[in-house]
Amino acid sequence: MFEARLTQGVLLRKLLDSMKDLVQDANFDCSSTGFALQAMDSSHVSLIHMQLRSDGFDHFRCDRNLSMGVSLNNMAKILKCMGNDDVLTMKAEDQGDSVTFMFESANQERISDFELKLMDIDSEQLGIPDTDYSATVKMPSAEFARICKDLSTIGDTVLIAVTKDGVRFSTTGDIGSANVTVRSHSNVDKPEEQVVIDMQEPVALTFALRYLNSFAKATPLSNQVMISMSKELPVVVQYRIEDMGHISYYLAPKIED
């Protein structure tokens, strides 16, 4: 038996909205540790890893490990039927072929349940090695989303270069070129607006903007985004979900010709 109750049900809807454009079908892995998903996008260029810890839920019960295969698009459609302030409860039997989403309005006057059929999905779990990154940038997630969107009007790829002076996002295209530089700054009153650059050595890598724009769909989940880079390694774009976990996206850099 799996049962998980989330007062802020809207959180799961935001999570689905931040994954469904990249991944069609995936397994949610339920265990006593929590509720997790790891999946590659259809072109196998990027990897999503999201994890919600069991202690972040108001109630969490998972008698035995369970892998729930779902169409993310269909699950997102169901979660769209949830009110913004609803409490969400997910339930699934150990050997069942469906998962139930129950939505309770804050005043308890409306209770609805939606059942989603599960699918068998073959997926290999990848091990992600711990890495000491050359540079890690923490910045407002909305600023990162804006930069990726703005640069997409000019080019298809972005060069992200971290130096001690700041982080520069550059692109070129048929109509011209663009650069946005963000400098580190702290703001005691508004920590969500600060930019923190932790650099061991300068690093510059090129990425497809299409993917970064998909990752930025996670912006509503967190005020800040953390971008970690090392030479010739995938970038990690991580959104921390307060008191619960994170969603992290891995994207391989473009190879120079």
Binding site: M40, H44, Q125, L126, A208, A252, I255
Partner: peptide
């Protein structure tokens, strides 16, 4: 995808 290694090649299969 052109100019890009598959992401799985950076990780190991569990």
């Amino acid at each position: 995808l052109k100019g890009q290694r598959p992401i799985s090649s950076f990780f190991f299969v569990k």
